[in-house]
Structures are given as structure tokens and as C-alpha cells.
């Protein structure tokens, strides 16, 4: 059979009731529909492949945005650990420690008090020593300690501080 080349399926003859325009219209519609479907599927899929700016999921460990060298002895800095604040500190002796920065009293964010060599919560004058133990004021419990690991950063002199939940 030598039917027209347009219909993709089987070499059937043109139906008597259908003019070529109408048939072509349906085929164009269908073709358009499939192109549409393909585009509507590919667009989200390809966008999905592009990595988001924040790079990777936050997990149970975090690399601090400052290096061990940048953290001065006898000082502390707040960092973001998931959706919580953490405090990293360097003792006067140079040891680095990290804690959950939320005061165990009413969850204010604590700070490093250099003069006293302690961690302080300014909300109700809660004091913790440098091991996170509550030593004075209202806090009922010690600060939750995190595990600190140090590792050499590739291609630079800095040392990365990696904090993870104990």
C-alpha cells in the first residue's frame, strides 16, 4: 500500500470522511502535546540537576567558617550548626572546644567572657566554665558539648575546625 507518508502508524488509506487538514490538525495537536509534555518534564528535571547554592545538606557535623588560627586564644565565636547556634572557643591554653550556644536556662545565646575566662549568658547572668559546666547563676544544666576535630585544609596553611554532635 502506498498511503501518504504523514501517518506514522501502518500504511492505511485516508478515511473517506476526513479531509487532510483535519487529520493534520489532530496530528499537529498531538505532536504539540508531546513536545509540551517533554518540555514540561525536562524543565524541572534539568533544573533539579543544577546544584543549589548552599551546596550540600546540613548534617550532624559542620566545618566552621573560620580556621583554628583565626580563633584567638581566650576568645569564642558563635557559629551556625544546622538550625542551632553553637559557640566555638579557644581556651587561654589554646585548646579548641565547642558547645551548643543556647543557655540551659531560657535558651538565650551565650558568649565568651574573656575577663573571667568563662562562658556567660547575659540574659540572667548565667556562668559556665570552659568545660561547659554551669558554675553560677540560674542555668540548671551544663551546656551540651560538641566534638571538635581539626584537620589541615587543602592548599592552605589554615586548620579547619570540624564540629560534630557527640
Amino acid at each position: 500500500m502506498t498511503g501518504t507518508s504523514q501517518p506514522p502508524q501502518g500504511g492505511d488509506t485516508q478515511g473517506p470522511a476526513e479531509g487532510p487538514t483535519r487529520r493534520e490538525l489532530v496530528d499537529y495537536m498531538l505532536g504539540g502535546a508531546f513536545v509540551l509534555t517533554g518540555a514540561a518534564t525536562l524543565y524541572p528535571a534539568l533544573n533539579y540537576l543544577v546544584p543549589p547554592e548552599s551546596g550540600e545538606a546540613e548534617t550532624s557535623s559542620v566545618v566552621l567558617p573560620f580556621s583554628a588560627e583565626e580563633l584567638q586564644p581566650d576568645s569564642g565565636r558563635i557559629f551556625k550548626f544546622g538550625n542551632q547556634p553553637g559557640i566555638a572557643l579557644k581556651t587561654p591554653q589554646g585548646e579548641i572546644r565547642a558547645f551548643d550556644a543556647r543557655c540551659s536556662h531560657l535558651s538565650c545565646i551565650v558568649q565568651y567572657a574573656s575577663e573571667q575566662h568563662r562562658i556567660m549568658c547575659a540574659c540572667h547572668m548565667g556562668w559556665y566554665d570552659l568545660t561547659g559546666r554551669n558554675v553560677a547563676g540560674p542555668p540548671p544544666r551544663p551546656l551540651t558539648a560538641f566534638t571538635v576535630n581539626l584537620r589541615k585544609r587543602k592548599g592552605s596553611d589554615g586548620t579547619e575546625i570540624v564540629v560534630s554532635r557527640a
Binding site: R23, V26, D27, M29, L30, A33, T37
Partner: peptide, 12 residues
Amino acid sequence: FVIVSLVLKVRQ
């Protein structure tokens, strides 16, 4: 739209 096209094609 896709479904309508398909149905038309089916009838055809």
C-alpha cells in the same frame, strides 16, 4: 490539552 488531543486521535 494532551488528553483532548489523544481522545481526538483515538477517535480518528
